[in-house]
Design a binder for these strands. Structure first.
Lengths: 137, 137
DNA sequence: CTTAATGCAAACCGTTTGCATAGAT
DNA sequence: ATCTATGCAAACGGTTTGCATTAAG
Protein backbone atom coordinates (compact mmCIF):
# COMPACT_ATOMS: atom_id res chain seq x y z
CA UNK A 1 0.00 0.00 0.00
CA UNK A 2 2.60 2.60 1.01
CA UNK A 3 4.93 1.12 -1.59
CA UNK A 4 2.34 2.03 -4.22
CA UNK A 5 2.27 5.63 -3.09
CA UNK A 6 6.03 5.92 -3.38
CA UNK A 7 6.09 4.29 -6.80
CA UNK A 8 3.36 6.56 -8.05
CA UNK A 9 5.34 9.68 -7.18
CA UNK A 10 8.58 8.14 -8.46
CA UNK A 11 10.50 7.68 -5.23
CA UNK A 12 12.53 4.63 -4.37
CA UNK A 13 11.04 2.37 -1.74
CA UNK A 14 13.12 2.78 1.37
CA UNK A 15 12.44 2.03 4.97
CA UNK A 16 12.53 5.61 6.27
CA UNK A 17 10.06 6.72 3.62
CA UNK A 18 7.71 3.80 4.34
CA UNK A 19 7.84 4.39 8.07
CA UNK A 20 7.15 8.08 7.69
CA UNK A 21 4.24 7.41 5.35
CA UNK A 22 2.84 4.95 7.89
CA UNK A 23 3.20 7.47 10.69
CA UNK A 24 1.48 10.16 8.65
CA UNK A 25 -1.47 7.89 7.94
CA UNK A 26 -2.05 7.09 11.59
CA UNK A 27 -5.24 8.30 13.10
CA UNK A 28 -5.13 10.60 16.06
CA UNK A 29 -2.24 12.97 15.77
CA UNK A 30 -2.17 14.35 12.25
CA UNK A 31 0.47 16.98 12.80
CA UNK A 32 4.10 15.99 13.19
CA UNK A 33 7.15 18.09 13.79
CA UNK A 34 10.35 16.57 12.44
CA UNK A 35 11.68 16.11 15.94
CA UNK A 36 8.57 14.38 17.30
CA UNK A 37 8.37 12.14 14.25
CA UNK A 38 12.04 11.26 14.60
CA UNK A 39 11.67 10.43 18.28
CA UNK A 40 8.59 8.35 17.54
CA UNK A 41 10.44 6.30 14.93
CA UNK A 42 13.52 5.83 17.09
CA UNK A 43 11.28 4.59 19.91
CA UNK A 44 9.79 2.12 17.45
CA UNK A 45 13.28 0.81 16.81
CA UNK A 46 13.59 2.36 13.35
CA UNK A 47 17.16 3.40 12.64
CA UNK A 48 16.73 6.82 11.07
CA UNK A 49 18.46 10.17 11.45
CA UNK A 50 16.76 13.51 11.93
CA UNK A 51 18.29 14.71 8.67
CA UNK A 52 16.50 11.99 6.78
CA UNK A 53 13.23 12.87 8.45
CA UNK A 54 13.62 16.44 7.22
CA UNK A 55 14.67 15.27 3.77
CA UNK A 56 11.69 12.94 3.44
CA UNK A 57 9.20 15.53 4.69
CA UNK A 58 10.64 18.06 2.26
CA UNK A 59 10.45 15.63 -0.65
CA UNK A 60 6.90 14.70 0.27
CA UNK A 61 6.03 18.36 0.45
CA UNK A 62 7.45 19.07 -2.99
CA UNK A 63 5.53 16.12 -4.40
CA UNK A 64 2.33 17.35 -2.80
CA UNK A 65 2.02 14.46 -0.37
CA UNK A 66 2.26 16.64 2.72
CA UNK A 67 1.76 20.23 3.77
CA UNK A 68 4.11 22.14 6.00
CA UNK A 69 2.77 24.61 8.54
CA UNK A 70 4.69 27.15 10.58
CA UNK A 71 2.41 27.99 13.45
CA UNK A 72 3.40 31.18 15.25
CA UNK A 73 6.59 30.87 17.21
CA UNK A 74 6.73 27.13 16.86
CA UNK A 75 8.73 24.64 14.87
CA UNK A 76 7.27 23.46 11.55
CA UNK A 77 4.72 20.68 11.51
CA UNK A 78 3.83 18.40 8.64
CA UNK A 79 0.54 16.75 7.84
CA UNK A 80 -0.84 14.60 5.05
CA UNK A 81 -2.11 16.69 2.17
CA UNK A 82 -5.65 15.40 1.92
CA UNK A 83 -6.39 17.69 -1.03
CA UNK A 84 -9.48 19.07 0.65
CA UNK A 85 -8.10 22.22 2.16
CA UNK A 86 -8.81 22.83 5.83
CA UNK A 87 -7.89 25.36 8.48
CA UNK A 88 -6.59 24.94 12.01
CA UNK A 89 -7.41 25.64 15.61
CA UNK A 90 -4.33 25.45 17.82
CA UNK A 91 -4.44 25.30 21.61
CA UNK A 92 -1.82 27.68 22.98
CA UNK A 93 -1.63 25.67 26.20
CA UNK A 94 -1.18 22.07 25.11
CA UNK A 95 -0.58 22.33 21.37
CA UNK A 96 -3.70 20.38 20.42
CA UNK A 97 -4.59 20.90 16.77
CA UNK A 98 -8.14 20.70 15.44
CA UNK A 99 -9.13 21.03 11.81
CA UNK A 100 -12.13 22.70 10.30
CA UNK A 101 -13.54 23.94 7.02
CA UNK A 102 -15.96 26.78 6.58
CA UNK A 103 -17.22 27.28 3.02
CA UNK A 104 -18.15 30.87 3.76
CA UNK A 105 -14.62 31.72 4.88
CA UNK A 106 -13.18 30.03 1.80
CA UNK A 107 -15.48 32.03 -0.42
CA UNK A 108 -14.65 35.33 1.25
CA UNK A 109 -10.93 34.66 0.99
CA UNK A 110 -11.24 34.26 -2.73
CA UNK A 111 -13.20 37.49 -2.87
CA UNK A 112 -10.46 39.30 -0.92
CA UNK A 113 -7.75 37.99 -3.22
CA UNK A 114 -9.70 39.17 -6.23
CA UNK A 115 -10.33 42.56 -4.66
CA UNK A 116 -6.57 43.09 -4.34
CA UNK A 117 -5.85 41.46 -7.70
CA UNK A 118 -3.81 38.66 -6.19
CA UNK A 119 -3.63 35.32 -7.98
CA UNK A 120 -4.13 33.19 -4.88
CA UNK A 121 -1.74 30.28 -4.55
CA UNK A 122 -2.47 29.24 -0.99
CA UNK A 123 -3.98 30.44 2.23
CA UNK A 124 -3.56 29.68 5.89
CA UNK A 125 -5.98 30.43 8.66
CA UNK A 126 -5.04 29.57 12.22
CA UNK A 127 -7.20 30.30 15.23
CA UNK A 128 -5.25 30.30 18.48
CA UNK A 129 -7.01 29.69 21.74
CA UNK A 130 -7.39 27.52 24.82
CA UNK A 131 -9.16 24.19 24.36
CA UNK A 132 -11.89 22.99 26.70
CA UNK A 133 -9.75 20.45 28.61
CA UNK A 134 -7.04 23.06 29.23
CA UNK A 135 -9.55 25.61 30.49
CA UNK A 136 -10.75 23.13 33.11
CA UNK A 137 -7.31 22.43 34.54
CA UNK B 1 5.17 62.24 20.80
CA UNK B 2 7.10 58.97 20.76
CA UNK B 3 8.43 59.81 24.19
CA UNK B 4 4.84 59.84 25.44
CA UNK B 5 4.22 56.37 24.09
CA UNK B 6 7.25 55.01 25.90
CA UNK B 7 6.33 56.73 29.14
CA UNK B 8 2.80 55.42 28.99
CA UNK B 9 3.96 51.80 28.79
CA UNK B 10 6.67 52.37 31.37
CA UNK B 11 9.82 52.08 29.29
CA UNK B 12 12.79 54.35 29.59
CA UNK B 13 13.27 56.81 26.77
CA UNK B 14 16.24 55.65 24.75
CA UNK B 15 17.36 56.39 21.26
CA UNK B 16 16.95 52.89 19.83
CA UNK B 17 13.40 52.70 21.14
CA UNK B 18 12.52 56.13 19.75
CA UNK B 19 14.02 55.34 16.36
CA UNK B 20 12.19 52.04 16.14
CA UNK B 21 8.91 53.68 17.11
CA UNK B 22 9.48 56.29 14.41
CA UNK B 23 10.22 53.64 11.84
CA UNK B 24 7.10 51.68 12.75
CA UNK B 25 4.93 54.77 12.36
CA UNK B 26 6.18 55.50 8.89
CA UNK B 27 3.70 55.21 6.11
CA UNK B 28 4.35 52.84 3.30
CA UNK B 29 6.04 49.73 4.55
CA UNK B 30 4.23 48.57 7.65
CA UNK B 31 5.96 45.26 8.04
CA UNK B 32 9.54 45.11 9.25
CA UNK B 33 11.81 42.18 9.80
CA UNK B 34 14.45 42.76 12.47
CA UNK B 35 17.18 42.61 9.88
CA UNK B 36 15.57 45.12 7.50
CA UNK B 37 14.78 47.46 10.36
CA UNK B 38 18.35 47.21 11.63
CA UNK B 39 19.81 47.92 8.20
CA UNK B 40 17.44 50.86 7.77
CA UNK B 41 18.54 52.41 11.06
CA UNK B 42 22.24 51.84 10.40
CA UNK B 43 21.84 53.53 7.01
CA UNK B 44 20.24 56.45 8.84
CA UNK B 45 23.35 56.68 10.96
CA UNK B 46 21.75 55.29 14.11
CA UNK B 47 24.24 53.29 16.15
CA UNK B 48 22.23 50.24 17.11
CA UNK B 49 22.90 46.52 17.19
CA UNK B 50 20.65 43.82 15.79
CA UNK B 51 20.30 42.38 19.29
CA UNK B 52 18.74 45.61 20.50
CA UNK B 53 16.35 45.65 17.56
CA UNK B 54 15.16 42.18 18.56
CA UNK B 55 14.96 43.17 22.21
CA UNK B 56 12.93 46.28 21.47
CA UNK B 57 10.56 44.48 19.10
CA UNK B 58 10.05 41.76 21.70
CA UNK B 59 9.37 44.28 24.46
CA UNK B 60 6.98 46.19 22.25
CA UNK B 61 5.24 42.94 21.44
CA UNK B 62 4.82 42.03 25.10
CA UNK B 63 3.44 45.48 25.82
CA UNK B 64 0.98 45.17 22.97
CA UNK B 65 2.56 47.89 20.86
CA UNK B 66 3.44 45.60 17.96
CA UNK B 67 2.39 42.26 16.54
CA UNK B 68 4.80 39.62 15.33
CA UNK B 69 3.96 37.53 12.28
CA UNK B 70 5.71 34.41 11.05
CA UNK B 71 4.70 34.11 7.44
CA UNK B 72 5.38 30.66 6.01
CA UNK B 73 9.03 29.91 5.55
CA UNK B 74 10.10 33.48 6.18
CA UNK B 75 11.73 35.41 8.96
CA UNK B 76 9.42 37.12 11.46
CA UNK B 77 8.01 40.53 10.67
CA UNK B 78 6.74 43.13 13.09
CA UNK B 79 4.03 45.73 12.62
CA UNK B 80 2.32 48.33 14.73
CA UNK B 81 -0.58 46.86 16.67
CA UNK B 82 -3.34 49.15 15.53
CA UNK B 83 -5.89 47.39 17.73
CA UNK B 84 -8.24 46.90 14.82
CA UNK B 85 -7.33 43.40 13.81
CA UNK B 86 -6.62 42.79 10.15
CA UNK B 87 -5.48 39.95 7.95
CA UNK B 88 -2.78 39.74 5.30
CA UNK B 89 -2.21 39.10 1.63
CA UNK B 90 1.41 38.22 0.90
CA UNK B 91 2.92 38.16 -2.58
CA UNK B 92 5.05 35.04 -2.89
CA UNK B 93 7.12 36.69 -5.62
CA UNK B 94 8.12 40.07 -4.20
CA UNK B 95 7.03 39.87 -0.57
CA UNK B 96 4.53 42.72 -0.86
CA UNK B 97 2.10 42.71 2.05
CA UNK B 98 -1.44 44.03 1.82
CA UNK B 99 -3.89 44.24 4.69
CA UNK B 100 -7.60 43.62 4.72
CA UNK B 101 -10.54 43.08 7.05
CA UNK B 102 -13.63 41.11 6.26
CA UNK B 103 -16.33 41.21 8.94
CA UNK B 104 -17.88 38.01 7.66
CA UNK B 105 -14.62 36.11 8.04
CA UNK B 106 -14.14 37.50 11.53
CA UNK B 107 -17.62 36.40 12.48
CA UNK B 108 -17.19 32.90 11.09
CA UNK B 109 -13.89 32.48 12.91
CA UNK B 110 -15.58 33.17 16.21
CA UNK B 111 -18.27 30.68 15.30
CA UNK B 112 -15.64 28.03 14.53
CA UNK B 113 -13.85 28.63 17.82
CA UNK B 114 -17.14 28.26 19.67
CA UNK B 115 -18.01 25.12 17.77
CA UNK B 116 -14.80 23.49 18.99
CA UNK B 117 -15.08 25.04 22.44
CA UNK B 118 -11.88 27.04 22.10
CA UNK B 119 -11.50 30.29 23.99
CA UNK B 120 -10.02 32.25 21.10
CA UNK B 121 -6.96 34.31 22.00
CA UNK B 122 -5.82 35.28 18.52
CA UNK B 123 -6.14 34.36 14.89
CA UNK B 124 -4.06 34.74 11.78
CA UNK B 125 -5.24 34.55 8.23
CA UNK B 126 -2.71 34.85 5.43
CA UNK B 127 -3.55 34.60 1.76
CA UNK B 128 -0.53 33.83 -0.39
CA UNK B 129 -0.55 34.72 -4.05
CA UNK B 130 1.03 36.69 -6.85
CA UNK B 131 0.29 40.41 -6.95
CA UNK B 132 -0.74 42.21 -10.12
CA UNK B 133 2.63 43.89 -10.80
CA UNK B 134 4.46 40.57 -10.42
CA UNK B 135 2.08 38.78 -12.75
CA UNK B 136 2.84 41.30 -15.47
CA UNK B 137 6.59 40.89 -15.31
C1' DC C 1 24.11 57.07 42.36
C1' DT C 2 21.41 53.16 41.07
C1' DT C 3 19.51 50.25 37.92
C1' DA C 4 18.15 49.40 33.32
C1' DA C 5 19.60 49.45 28.35
C1' DT C 6 23.02 48.66 24.89
C1' DG C 7 26.66 46.65 21.71
C1' DC C 8 29.32 42.96 20.86
C1' DA C 9 30.28 38.29 20.35
C1' DA C 10 29.13 33.89 21.59
C1' DA C 11 25.45 30.63 22.24
C1' DC C 12 21.23 28.56 20.70
C1' DC C 13 18.03 25.79 18.06
C1' DG C 14 15.57 24.24 14.24
C1' DT C 15 16.90 23.01 9.74
C1' DT C 16 20.04 22.00 5.84
C1' DT C 17 24.18 20.23 3.66
C1' DG C 18 28.76 17.66 2.58
C1' DC C 19 30.57 13.43 2.51
C1' DA C 20 31.57 8.64 2.83
C1' DT C 21 28.83 4.41 3.18
C1' DA C 22 24.79 1.43 2.52
C1' DG C 23 21.03 0.17 -0.23
C1' DA C 24 17.51 0.11 -4.21
C1' DT C 25 16.83 -1.00 -8.96
C1' DA D 1 26.88 -2.01 -11.53
C1' DT D 2 24.92 2.35 -11.10
C1' DC D 3 23.19 5.87 -8.89
C1' DT D 4 20.20 7.40 -5.15
C1' DA D 5 19.30 7.46 -0.12
C1' DT D 6 21.11 7.50 4.38
C1' DG D 7 23.53 8.58 8.86
C1' DC D 8 26.60 11.39 10.90
C1' DA D 9 28.53 15.60 12.02
C1' DA D 10 29.41 20.02 10.65
C1' DA D 11 27.38 24.22 8.75
C1' DC D 12 23.75 27.55 8.48
C1' DG D 13 20.60 31.53 9.56
C1' DG D 14 17.51 33.75 12.36
C1' DT D 15 17.09 34.82 17.16
C1' DT D 16 18.54 35.03 22.02
C1' DT D 17 21.72 35.63 25.82
C1' DG D 18 25.98 36.77 28.86
C1' DC D 19 28.75 40.25 30.01
C1' DA D 20 31.20 44.46 30.42
C1' DT D 21 30.06 49.26 29.35
C1' DT D 22 27.02 53.24 28.82
C1' DA D 23 23.22 55.95 29.78
C1' DA D 24 18.48 57.10 31.91
C1' DG D 25 16.10 58.57 35.98
Amino acid sequence: MYEKILQKVGLKITNPRLEILKLLHQQGSHHWSAEIAHQYLVDLGVDVGIATVYRVFTQFEMLGLVKRHSFEGDRSVFELNDLEHHDHLVCVECGLVEEFVDPLIEERQLAMAQKFQFAMTDHRLVIYGVCAPCRKS
